[in-house]
C-alpha cells in the first residue's frame, strides 16, 4: 500500500496538470468542429434574428453543390495549395542546402532568411500590394522603367492576381520549409558525403543518391505542415485582392468568411467551413497513408 499511495497521487497530479490544457482544446477546438456541423444544418441569418434558426437538414449542402462560386472556390483553393506548397518545399530545400554549408556569418544569414517568416502576414500583404501597385509600384518600374503607359495593374488581372498571392505566400513561408529540411540535413553524418566524394561521386550524384533519400522524411514533414497551412490562407487574400478580381483568388477560407461574417449567412457559411474541414481531413489521411505513421512514431519512443 505504501507504494500505491504515491503512484495514485502521481496519476491525480498528471490529470490535474493535463486537465486545463485538454479542457481548453476540447471547448475551443474540438467542440467548435462538431458545432459548425450542427450550425450547417440550420438556416441562420445574422441580420435577421426574427427568422429564428430553423432546421433545414442538408439544405445548405444542396445549395453548396449547386453554387458555382463555391465550386470555383474549391478549385482555386486546390490550385493555391498545390502550387504554393510544391514551390515552398522546392525552394526551401534549395535554401536548406545553401544554409547547411558552414561559412562565416551563417547565423546572420539564417536570421535574414527567417525575417519573412516572422513578418506579420498582413504586413507582407500590404508590402506586396504596394510593390505591385499599378501607378507607383516598384515592380512596374523595374520592368517598364519610365514607360508609364505600359504599367499594369497586376492585382486587377485574374491570372496575375492568383500568381501574386501564391508568390507572396512562397516568399513568406519557404523559410519554414527550409528549417525543417535543414534539421533533416543535419542528421546526415558528414563522413558519408566525404566518403562518397572520395569515391568520385559528383555533387549532383551525391545529392541524388545520398542526400535526397536520407532527407526525404524531413521533406515529407515539411510538405504536410505547409499543405495544412496553405489551406488556411486568408490574410493575403483579404488584404491583396478581397477574393477578386472576378473571384479569381476567392479561396474557400475567404469565401466562408465572406458568407458567414460579411453577408451574415451563418448556416450556409458553416456548410462551406465543413467542406474545408473535410478537404483538409481527406488530404491529411492521404498523407498519413503515404508518409506512414512517422509523425506519431517520433513521440512514442
Amino acid at each position: 500500500m505504501a507504494v500505491m499511495a504515491p503512484r495514485r497521487g502521481e496519476k491525480l497530479l498528471a490529470w490535474g496538470l493535463l486537465l486545463p490544457c485538454l479542457a481548453a482544446v476540447c471547448a475551443f477546438a474540438f467542440w467548435p468542429i462538431v458545432y459548425s456541423f450542427v450550425l450547417s444544418l440550420h438556416r441562420i441569418v445574422l441580420g435577421l434574428p426574427g427568422l429564428g434558426e430553423p432546421f433545414v437538414g442538408l439544405g445548405n449542402y444542396a445549395r453548396l453543390l449547386a453554387d458555382p462560386t463555391a465550386r470555383s472556390s474549391a478549385g482555386i483553393t486546390l490550385v493555391f495549395v498545390a502550387v504554393s506548397t510544391l514551390c515552398e518545399v522546392a525552394l526551401g530545400t534549395l535554401m536548406a542546402l545553401a544554409l547547411d554549408r558552414s561559412f562565416r556569418g551563417r547565423g546572420l544569414v539564417r536570421a535574414a532568411v527567417l525575417v519573412p517568416w516572422a513578418i506579420p502576414t498582413v504586413v507582407a500583404s500590404q508590402m506586396w500590394r504596394f510593390i505591385l501597385n499599378d501607378r507607383y509600384g516598384l515592380l512596374n518600374w523595374l520592368i517598364f522603367g519610365d514607360q508609364v503607359g505600359s504599367y499594369r495593374a497586376w492585382l486587377a488581372e485574374p491570372g496575375w492576381a492568383l500568381a501574386a498571392v501564391i508568390g507572396a505566400d512562397v516568399w513568406k513561408t519557404s523559410a519554414f520549409a527550409a528549417l525543417i529540411v535543414l534539421a533533416g540535413l543535419q542528421t546526415i553524418p558528414r563522413e558519408l558525403n566525404e566518403a562518397a566524394a572520395l569515391d568520385g561521386a559528383g555533387s549532383w550524384q551525391r545529392f541524388r543518391h545520398l542526400t535526397l533519400p536520407l532527407v526525404l522524411p524531413a521533406l515529407a514533414v515539411a510538405l504536410v505542415f505547409r499543405t495544412m497551412d496553405a489551406f488556411r490562407v486568408f490574410d493575403l487574400v483579404y488584404v491583396m485582392t478581397q477574393g477578386g478580381p472576378a473571384n479569381a483568388t476567392n479561396v474557400l477560407q475567404f469565401y466562408g468568411y465572406k458568407k458567414m461574417f460579411a453577408e451574415g449567412f451563418m448556416g450556409y457559411g458553416s456548410a462551406v467551413s465543413v467542406m474545408v474541414f473535410v478537404m483538409v481531413l481527406a488530404v491529411s489521411l492521404l498523407y498519413l497513408r503515404l508518409v506512414g505513421r512517422r509523425l506519431l512514431r517520433g513521440d512514442a519512443r
Binding site: P32, L39, M228, F261, S284, D299
Partner: peptide, 30 residues
C-alpha cells in the same frame, strides 16, 4: 508522468494545430 494514451493525446494536439480556422470561426464567434 504515466499518462494512459499518451501518443493519442499528442496526436490529438497535432490534429488541432492543423484545423482550418474557418471551421472554428462560426462556433467560437457564437
Amino acid at each position: 508522468l504515466r499518462v494512459p494514451g499518451r501518443p493519442w493525446l499528442m496526436g490529438a494536439l497535432l490534429l488541432v494545430s492543423m484545423f482550418p480556422q474557418i471551421s472554428l470561426a462560426g462556433p467560437i464567434w457564437r
